[in-house]
Amino acid sequence: MAILPDYMPIKVFEQYAERYDQWFVDHPDVYLGELKRVKIAIGTVPTPVLEIGVGSGRFAGPLSIKHGVEPSLPLGLMAKKRGIEIIQGIGESIPVKSRTFRTVVMITVLCFLEGPDETFREVHRVLMHDGTLVVAFIEKGGTIAQTYLTRPDKGTFLSHARFYTQEEVVSMIKRNGFVLKSADCRMGFCILVFHKDE
């Protein structure tokens, strides 16, 4: 098994952290549109909330998420400045005690995971009884994936991504101990809400 911090997507985020964060400034329409949809999907989820792959905190900040796991230190430092308590780590081995959080949020991180099944097993472990999992992702073959893969700004990151269809994601998460509660899939961006199945 490769040493995980050397996993290519993590190295790309380390190298291009500033460019990654600048994308949200340069594309407010797309960013705010996705943020609004995630906000609606999340609603009033139970706290405390943990975001896996919190990045520079562009979603966690406005969503008032207090804790984030992020492998990239440069991105983690940006998120910290946005008021989020950062734990440098990976979703496949979450360094958090079992049954700690009531909600886990993952926004456009699934496509960059080396081990998605391991990650969902870990999310199941850190969630309390009847905990909520919110997964937002760019759908395989959808409008966003097609549009941005060829563009130099977002393409820097998405070219290292592994996209999944809605059906693949639902199946993957269900087999790791979750029940689907709601789905909002439009314009190539999907938001799925699950409950932990004990």
Binding site: M1, A2, I3, L4, P5, P71, L73, G76, L77, K80, I86, I87, Q88, G89, I90, S93, P95
Partner: peptide
């Protein structure tokens, strides 16, 4: 460091 705990797994081998 810099107020962030680095809890990346360290014992994975190539």
């Amino acid at each position: 460091d810099e107020g962030i705990p680095n809890l990346l797994p360290q014992n994975t081998t190539s």
